[in-house]
Write a protein that binds this DNA or RNA. Structure first.
Lengths: 209, 209
DNA sequence: TAGATTGTTAATCGATTAACAATC
DNA sequence: TAGATTGTTAATCGATTAACAATC
């Protein structure tokens, strides 16, 4: 099973490897090397080889890695070798942008359910999906056996929605609210807060006059 | 100056400390401790004290940290003690959502310029800002002395836009295109790709039937 | 005062890199 | 074959934690 024992920091790099491999494949390449991947990503070739070696021996000396088979291996490892249905909670501007975003489908995710608490939005259709009341989250997500959710509500509602998602059986939450969610330890959370990234960068900049 | 010598991983935590401090302040607290901050963020108290100690002595034994003065110190350290103007390139769904997002202003950033390459969008107004042609990026950004940009174009245009931004003097790019941008080493890039985060989480999930 | 909490040191832990035999 | 590149080991490097004297 090997869901354990692999450092999380390594898991965090695998999707980047996958993204680069797909890019190389689109360029028509058949083989690549740890050196080439490293150049693309700004990572040392040794690290890439070491990361991959935790899962198996996927390369050939002298030749490198067959792109399509390494792609398949990484998809299998990451559990992205099939499509995950995703619930999106909050269809404000950001939620709508996510609902319209075409980049999920060919990368193993598909938004299948939309929820909001605004009566003016409930019942609307966005790209063919009806916006459902947040009151239906628990029942709907349980029935559909959804494990992955994106949370794009205002900050004040985020924790309560997260609690509901957890009760519904969701185990992975992509959190766009700029707050720390408290969840049981079997539930995974990743945060996306653009301001955090901006603040981190301007540390290195000269403050303007 | 101390722009160097501090590990980047520490810099990455400072915005989180800042966000938690502001939350505590909104709750009416005056003092906090490394223990309390750590509990909020899932970080050890020792790490927080160590991180802060790289910049000075901000606490008092027995009492902890004065929230408003530590907030001020962190803002000063991060260069978020004034507002940074930000250029946004690409006003598709995501770009529009970012333009409408109210969370930048009270956190030291303000979108001041919008650019797109679609003639149908150029000249439109979004929240009072006119969408300008990408042809004007270099001149406009130089004149306005903008150092921070958010890149929300399609993937195929991202590198060319990044090159233009760099020529215009931009030194920090928040990149929403799912690709690695090649930039000079004085230019900082942070990537936001929701799929990367999702893929990283589902590794830990049981693949559904 | 007694209790609480800092800032800092030293120890521990974990991640990255360099190097190279194996081999395609 | 000769050249290239893997997988892996050991060394290095860096980050985290535990512990505690200092002191508010």
């Amino acid at each position: 099973m090997a869901r354990t024992g692999i450092p999380d920091i390594v898991i965090g790099r695998l999707p980047l490897y996958l993204r680069s491999l797909i890019r190389l494949q689109q360029g028509g390449a058949i083989f690549t090397s740890s050196y080439e991947l490293g150049q693309m990503l700004g990572i040392s070739s040794a690290q890439i080889r070491k990361d991959l070696s935790l899962f198996g021996e996927f390369g050939k000396q002298g030749t490198g890695y067959n792109i399509s088979s390494l792609t398949a291996e990484l998809r299998r490892i990451l559990h992205t070798d099939h499509e995950w249905p995703v619930a999106l909670i909050g269809v404000g501007d950001l939620g709508r942008a996510l609902a319209h975003y075409g980049g999920f489908v060919n990368r193993s995710f598909r938004i299948t359910h939309l929820f909001d608490n605004d009566p003016a939005k409930i019942g609307q259709h966005i790209d063919g999906l009806e916006v459902l009341s947040v009151d239906l989250i628990e029942k709907t997500i349980k029935t559909a056996n959804i494990k992955v959710a994106m949370l794009a509500t205002p900050i004040d509602e985020a924790q309560a929605v997260a609690d509901t998602l957890v009760r519904a059986g969701v185990e992975a939450i992509l959190n766009y609210a700029p707050t720390v969610l408290l969840v049981p330890e079997n539930v995974h959370v990743q945060d996306i807060d653009p301001v955090i990234h901006l603040q981190r960068m301007v540390y290195y900049l000269e403050p303007p006059a």
